[in-house]
């Protein structure tokens, strides 16, 4: 039987290792995906994923007072990712890092029944969007990725970012406006 998150969190707080393992299983892809989109390479995304869950393990007592488990977990991941991003200047990555960064991000958008021309257009748009996301400042990028790419709601994003929902709305508005400006006619 599939346990719901509240039961798993309760079990985890009470020291149930299997509950912790199940939480890792359920959230590892989300955390990895978020970190990868922010940092652009597997090594950093792996570091963030592991460190996030290790810190969650250490902070399990704090979970007693937490309302939103997802927001709490994302907060740990977000803080670590932004710190890592500040620490490592991505513009000085080596050529190897660049290869690693682009390979997993092959933007093979699902084309459905679209024809070859449409495929090329969508592929180009996907690449342009990925590049445009990279140009955003860290907090706007994080907000856009959490809300628009990963599909978390405003409340979860606000908890993850440690800011009011109004700030999320504002960051999102600015980030999207920049993206529209950079992508120009491609979106019309």
């Amino acid at each position: 039987m599939t346990k719901d998150i509240k039961d798993l969190v309760k079990g985890f707080i009470n020291g149930d290792q299997e509950a912790f393992a199940e939480l890792v299983r359920r959230y590892k892809r989300k955390v990895y995906s978020l970190a990868f989109r922010m940092l652009g390479n597997h090594a950093d995304a792996d570091e963030v994923t592991q460190e996030t869950f290790v810190r969650l393990y250490e902070q399990r007592e704090n979970l007693r007072t937490v309302g939103y488990f997802t927001g709490f977990l994302l907060r740990i991941a977000t803080n670590y990712t932004i710190d890592l991003l500040r620490k490592r200047n991505r513009h000085h990555l080596s050529l190897d890092d660049e290869t690693e960064m682009t390979l997993p991000l092959q933007l093979e958008l699902s084309m459905g029944a679209a024809g070859p021309d449409k495929e090329i257009e969508d592929d180009e748009l996907g690449v342009m969007i990925a590049q445009a996301i990279d140009r955003l400042p860290p907090k706007q990028r994080m907000t856009l990725i959490l809300h628009d790419v990963e599909g978390f709601d405003k409340t979860e994003v606000a908890i993850a970012m440690g800011c009011p929902e109004a700030t999320v709305r504002s960051n999102l508005h600015v980030a999207r406006a920049k993206m529209r400006k950079w992508l120009g006619k491609k979106l019309k």
Binding site: D46, Q50, L105, L107, L109, S110, I129, D148, V149
Partner: peptide
């Protein structure tokens, strides 16, 4: 824009990475 963002492929390092992760973290 939002539709395209939602449709971006999810980064996936492969099953060999995921399979041992819980144990490594624990």
């Amino acid at each position: 824009l939002v539709t395209t963002l939602r449709g971006l492929p999810t980064p996936d390092p492969g099953e060999s990475y995921w399979s041992g992760l819980e144990q490594t973290i624990l």
